[in-house]
Structures are given as C-alpha cells and as structure tokens.
Design a protein around this nucleic acid. Structure first.
Lengths: 193, 193, 193, 193
DNA sequence: AATGAATGAGGATTCATTCAT
DNA sequence: GATGAATGAATCCTCATTCAT
C-alpha cells in the first residue's frame, strides 16, 4: 500500500546514477550482473532480472544493450579478451577447453546465441576471433606433437561447442564430473596417432 | 459469483472424431505431431502447437499427456523400443550413435528433459532402459575388440548426450556435416589403444 | 502409455450399467455423489467430478441432469421431502434451523442456486414447498407462544438463507461453533417479546 | 529453442500514461474499478475485467496487485479506514451494520476472501483492525445500555459476515428490503434483555 | 442407455519492449 | 541519461458441454 518507490535492489551498493561516469559504471554492472545471473539461473532468466541484479532500471539495460544478443556478446567479448591474453603465449588446446569449462555458464550462453543467431554479423565477428585463437593453438600443439595431425580447427570448435552445451544442461552438482569425463574424451580424440 | 461457466457456442461445426478408436488414433497423431514439431522448432514450441499440428483440440492433448514430460517420454519411449529391437542382435556403439544422429530432434528433446527433470521417476525409468542398452553394446564391442577397454558406459552416455545437444542447436543444413565430424571424434575417443 | 480403459472409479462398487434398472440406480448414485462432493469441496467442484464420484461417465450425468440446476434441485428435493416428513408433526422453527445446519452443504448449494436462478421455475417451485413448510411451523410456534408474533415467514426464510451462506464459507473445523452462535442469534431474534 | 521471445508489434498506438504520477492514479483507478465491478458482478469476475474497467493493461493490474487477495485487501482497507474515522467517535454497532449494508459488495468480497485465505497474514491483519473496531463499539453500546450484556464481539462479527454474504447473493433490486429485514433481526438479537 | 473422448473458449499469468517523466 | 510504469501478446491450463461409438 506504500506509495514511496525504492529505486534499487537493496543488496547492491548504491551507485551514482547520472552522468557519463555512471554510464560506464552501469555498463560494467550490467555485464557483471549478466554473468552472475546466467551462472545461477541459466540463459532463460527474464531480461529484467539482469537489470534488477545490476541495480538499474529496465530502461538503462535497454539503452546499453538493445537486445539480448548485444548483452551476451558483450559478456563473451570480455571472455575472449581474457582467453587471448592468457593463451596467446604458451597456451594449448586442452588449456582452452579447461577455460571453457571454467566459464561454462557464459560459454553456454554464447554458444546458444551462435546457433540461434548464426547470421548476426556481431556474433560472426566474435566467433571469428575465437576461431583465430583456436587455429593458433592447434597449429602450435601440432608442431609440438601434443595433438595429432588429423585434428582440424573445426574439430576443436565442435568440441568446445559440445562441451558448452553439455555443461549448460548439467545440474551444477554434476558439472565437475561431467566436465572431467568430457575433457578426457576429447583428449583421446585429439591425441597423436 | 456465477457457479456455472458456459463455455462454447452450441451451434458450431460438428466434431468428427470421438470414441475409443479415435482416441488411440489421436494419441498416435499427437506423438507423430510432436516428432515433427520438435524436429522443426526444437523443444520450446508452445504445447498448443502440437495439438494444432495433430489436428486436435488443446484439451485432447492434455487428456492424453498431462504435461510436456509425459509427451516427450511417450515419444522417446517409441524410439527406445526401436533401438532395442534394432540393436539387440549385433548392434554396436557406433551404430547406436548413428541412430541418435538420425533421430536427433527427439533425442534432444529427451536429453533436455532429463536434465530438467532428473528426479521425475518416469524419466529415470526410461533413462535406465537406455543405459541398459548402452551397457550391452559396450560389453559386446569390447569383447570383439571394436572399442578400447577404457571406455565406460558413462562415456558413451555422455557422447550421446553431447551429440544430441549439439545437433539440437545446429541449423538443419549443417547437421549432416556436424554429425559426421562429431561421430569421428567419438570414434577416436573409443578406439582401442 | 496404457491403452486399456478402466471404466469406473475403483473405490466404488461396480454397478450393472445398462438398462432401465441401472438408470434409476445411476440417478440415485449421482445424487448421492453430489451430496458427498458438495460436502467435501463446496459448490465449485467441476461438474465432471460428480460423475467420476458416482462411477459413471460424463454423458450419463448430463442425461439425467441437463445442467447443474437440475442436479442441485434433485438433491435438495430429497432434503425437503425429509424435512416435511420429519417436521410436519410437531416440528418447530428452531428444529428446522437445526436441520439446515445439519445439511449445511446441500442447503448452501441450494441457496446459492436460488440467488443465481431466481427465475427458474423449477427453483421457484421447490422454494415454494419450503416456504409452505416454514409457514406451517411459524404459525404453530406462534400459537404455542414459542416465538414472538413479530416473526414473519420471510424472517425465517432469511435466517435460513443467512445461516446456509455463512456455513458455506466457514472452514469445516469451525462450522459447529459458528452454527451454534448463529443459531443463538436467531433464537433471540425470534423469541417472544 | 528460441531464447528471446518477441512479444509485441513495435508500431502500435502510443501509450499515454507513464511515470510515477500516473502510477498512483492507476492504483486508485484500479481500486475504484474493483469496487464497481464487484458491485456489479460479484467477486468472481475475471481479474482482467478489472483492468479493462480501469482502462489499463493486464500487466499494470498485476504490477500493482500481484493477486486477487492483494487487490481486495487494498479495497477493503480503504473501507476500514473510513469506518474507523466515522465510528470512532460516537459510533454504534447498529451504525456499523448500516455501513456494512451500504458497502455490501466490498464487504462481501472481503468476507469471502477471509474464508478462503484465513491464513494469509495480510488478511489476518486487516480482519484484526475490524475486530478492534467492533470491540470498541460493543463495549460502548453495552455501557450505554443500547445492547445486551450477552452480546459478544464474535456475535457482531458473525452478524456482519452473515449480512455481507446474504447481500452478496441478493439481486440488486431486493437488496434494500433484505437489508432492512436482516438489520431488524440482529437488532432483536442484540437488544438488552 | 452409457460411455468417455473431443472440443475450445476463457481465465491466470509472465515478460519483452516502449516511453513519459 | 536514468527510471520504472505501462502494455498486451502469448502461453498454460481448466472445464462445461457435445456426441460418436
């Protein structure tokens, strides 16, 4: 019956909410919120839940990310940044798989997105970045004899995709076990003859 | 306040199919419709779309299948029947994977169901039937030296699950290619050392 | 998945279900089922629940009672028979109230019906029978000095109606208490000055 | 499969009323609409009818009142405010009954609610407010000799409840007559010995 | 005369998206 | 720039009623 309107979710630090500085902060908060929400509830959460978790209004969410695609891409974009940074020097295919496993919820959201919006140029571009990274790692692994010469880039991409999908539909409690099993299967697939 | 709820205009087109004979036909039609719809649109289609495709009313769908779980299970149940029949004599793990590929859409709907309703006894029971079949094939393959002794039943189950998930989110036009690639990966995983 | 169709609710004796003898039996079973169902679940139960409870098909229910009105009237008709029989000789207004209390669920269903279908001639006729009984009792009570001369037939009817309504919306566990309180209020209203 | 659910055609008629100012107005409009609708059609009207009457969308109704309980309570809450204000000084039990009669439709909706959601704390709390008012009036009436010492608070509550129920199921045209009759019955019940 | 399957309108509810403030 | 209220289409599900068998 109260007529007063609390502005933000109480369990989140109150942020300055105007001006360009705040705008950047909101963007970051939204991406962080999306990570959390996707990890907790999977990719089917109401879009509005992300705004609430970020402590901003719905309008703000839409201002920064015109649709779900834009948001998921922004989230995954950061992941690819991190992957590139971490793996460019000395990384391996199996280390990449391990990362995918660690980031299961985000990976999944992105993989789902890719299958649903294969033709969205924003998605293509991000997928391409990932492809280039995979390509680099594969060549290096093969040169070092860590994986067989039969392995092609597309095989690794497929492994990543299957892994992400599988983890997406695995109960949190079983994820570690499933991840280990799946990892081993692909290790066998990739091993040198 | 009204206790009675009049629902429909009495002078409508006459309904053509009643009685227990039609009921069995409707049941079959609904399962067939579910197959088609799942193949075309994935497992998230409105429940009512299945009724429409089957050419029956919503109520008929609910009469036969009180919820989505019941329907998917009925559909997949038939698949397991067929799998058992086809593979009991002389079947192999890879032949089973090939079947899963052929039945991708149904397999997927079922695999999804399993992850969302892990504790539903109806789902458990059907999963168990599949497990037993996998177990049989694995033992036979190992005895014949077709797959390595490192392969466990759970590995095959995982392969099936990943395959189904992957195909579920693959555009129809790419499915054959993806299926072949994935199949090869698992063949390598399972090959004898 | 079973295709066999059990014909009747298992917790009810199987009745011969064809022919004129069965027809009368079904009619009685339906009325009895309605009593039970109304007592347990109030007047809002699905009509079909009554058929199920009676162990007959939906069609049979509709054959005997074209609508809810017809059924409720049939049920209450029996009650009025009993009331007349019990009270014609030596009955009193307060004894009538006591009966209404005992038959709370049926009384309620009827009272509700009356307010919703005031103009249905079948309902009018039954209401009239009740009115005549009330009238008889009131006159006798007044002649004996058991109730005041200010009491009119309509006052008693109103008391019955209010009592029935109230009990209809009282949790089963509180009904006895409420009934006793209400009874006392009307006793005071009716007492001779 | 689709993760996003596009809902509405983007080129539609522009919506006129947004923002917190309109929100308060809408809330008031919804409560007013509920009053009207309940008066006209009783408490069983589709929830959506209230939204339509208020001239707002369904979502707006649900935003303000997550369920029927919340709405009815909001409506009746205002009534209790008014009752307290009007009767705190110099009010009597019979004046309270008169008010209940005037507000029959709302009283009914609330009384029904109480019986169906006896354990909802929101309902309890409001019921308690009413109880306290009844208690105050009863004591005062007894001190002034306007009602008998046999009258207890629960008797008055019961009278209110029965009155409300009765009026709920009385055709509008008969309500005044019925109300007067019922009022008199309770006056007699309460009068000093 | 009985059966129970079929029907579909309609109520409850959710959420993607827009936009006045 | 931010806010969050408003919107209504769409989905789920229930049941009164009909009617083929």
């Amino acid at each position: 019956m109260s007529t007063s309107r609390p502005r933000s979710d109480p369990d989140r630090a109150p942020a300055p909410n105007r001006g360009p500085a705040a705008a950047a902060g909101n963007r970051r908060a939204l991406i962080a919120a999306a990570r959390e929400i996707y990890a907790e509830h999977g990719p089917m959460v109401p879009f509005s839940a992300i705004a609430k978790r970020a402590g901003v209004g719905q309008g703000t969410l839409y201002r920064h990310f015109p649709d779900r695609v834009a948001l998921v891409l922004a989230v995954f974009d950061e992941n690819v940044d991190a992957l590139e940074e971490a793996l460019r020097e000395g990384g391996t295919i199996m280390a990449l798989l391990d990362r995918v496993i660690d980031q299961a919820s985000v990976s999944t959201a992105f993989i789902r997105l890719l299958s649903e919006h294969q033709h969205d140029p924003r998605a293509r571009e991000l997928a391409l970045r990932l492809d280039r990274l995979v390509d680099l790692l594969r060549e290096r692994d093969q040169a070092a004899g860590r994986i067989g010469s039969h392995v092609q880039t597309i095989d690794v991409q497929l492994a990543i995709s299957m892994l992400a999908h599988e983890l997406a539909s695995t109960a949190a409690s079983d994820r570690a076990t499933v991840a280990a099993r799946a990892r081993r299967l692909f290790e066998l697939s990739f091993r040198p003859a």
